[in-house]
């Protein structure tokens, strides 16, 4: 058991190393010195409170959304629809927050979060029920639903709710805005990091506990490993499939909190910037372990902001290449370690 964990960690580290190697080659091809670029990136990102703050800010929605996706993945539900789910949820969350702005924070905040959660969960219900009733793979339905949901959100936003000649809602009441980290720690000055990072961390820890330590978590993983055996073990597999899908999809809505309540104060078209897809990579990288998701989100946040930091030297899109390379090398090195583990087995 312990050996398996160690091998897993080693495989992740090796993959990251391989990624840096490949990236270096890429940077060399552009004609820059990779060492200089990396030094610049590290010192820009980790050398200042602003850089660290921005990394945390970028990691926050990834942690939340990644945890939701991982929850589905554990039940072997390949939910590719987080982008749609979180947009629907965040949109409704902002609308409810707008309406309830006059109420005290303790009522208005939970109410808008709950509303967002319910909407995202309902979006998750659709592929779940289609899968159960008709056996259609959730991969197809969730991908397709992304387009439908985002088109619908756009329609309602632009036709009825957007501020004139913009693509965003009105600003929610200031009383609903979350405190910034810089309010407590001066060194984060200028960054958008806010209290949602605490929420995200708590969420990940809580779901780590649920998935690995509770009967519910065991049942969900059992369903993911072997549906037939789960049935024979007395698990109501259909009900659990719906539950896992709805809960996982619902959680993704909280990713909107970082932007809406922690940063801009409104829902804006395209705010999610493909978080729903990046979070899939984040979850895979962490092998769906919420604690690992915290780390992989930080890595992706680091790369994201690091790309901006070195944009004067190399195009920031290189960091997208790096993100993809991390995943590719993780997957292939993972296979190698699995092979190694199997060889050790009797």
């Amino acid at each position: 058991m312990n050996k398996r964990i160690i091998v897993n960690i080693v495989s992740v580290l090796v993959s990251i190393f391989v990624t840096f190697l490949l990236t270096s080659i890429l940077i060399l091809l552009i004609g820059k010195n990779p060492i200089d670029i990396f030094v610049m990136m590290f010192s820009e990102v980790l050398g200042s409170g602003y850089g660290i703050g921005q990394t945390l800010f970028k990691a926050t929605p990834l942690i939340i959304c990644g945890t939701g996706i991982a929850f589905c993945f554990h039940a072997s539900l390949f939910n590719i629809g987080a982008e749609g789910q979180l947009n629907a949820g965040a949109f409704v969350m902002s609308l409810v927050a707008l309406k309830l702005g006059a109420l005290p924070l303790v009522i208005a905040l939970p109410a808008s979060l709950l509303a967002g959660f319910i909407i995202s969960a309902l979006v998750g219900y659709v592929p779940a029920i289609i899968k159960i009733k008709k056996g259609v793979s959730e991969v197809i339905t969730t991908i397709m639903l992304n387009f439908v949901i985002i088109a619908l959100v756009n329609y309602f936003l632009i036709e009825f709710l957007a501020v004139k000649s913009t693509v965003r809602t009105e600003k929610i009441s200031d009383s609903l805005m979350l405190p910034q980290l810089s309010d407590y720690f001066n060194s984060f000055q200028g960054s958008s990091a806010n209290l949602s990072i605490i929420f995200a961390l708590a969420l990940a820890v809580f779901f780590y506990f649920v998935i690995y330590k509770t009967k519910l978590g065991y049942k969900i993983r059992a369903l993911g490993y072997n549906e037939t055996a789960s049935k024979y073990l007395g698990i109501r597999t259909n009900a659990l499939t719906i539950f896992s899908f709805m809960l996982g999809a619902g959680l993704t809505s909280f990713a909107g909190m970082n932007f809406i309540m922690g940063y801009k104060g409104y829902y804006e078209l395209g705010f999610s910037n493909n978080i729903g897809f990046t979070a899939i990579a984040v979850a895979l990288l962490a092998k769906n372990n919420p604690l690992g998701i915290i780390l992989s989100s930080l890595l992706f946040g680091f790369l994201d902001f690091g790309g901006l930091a070195v944009n004067t030297e190399i195009p920031k899109e290189i960091m997208l290449v790096v993100q993809a390379l991390v995943i590719l090398s993780i997957i292939s090195i993972n296979k190698l370690t699995e092979k190694y583990l199997n060889k050790q087995k009797i």
Binding site: R221, A222, N226, A229, Y232, L233
Partner: peptide, 14 residues
């Protein structure tokens, strides 16, 4: 293998 257990879990977990 197919119906009796979750082979990825320990005896205690099953």
């Amino acid at each position: 293998l197919k119906k009796g257990m979750i082979k990825e879990f320990s005896i205690g977990e099953n």
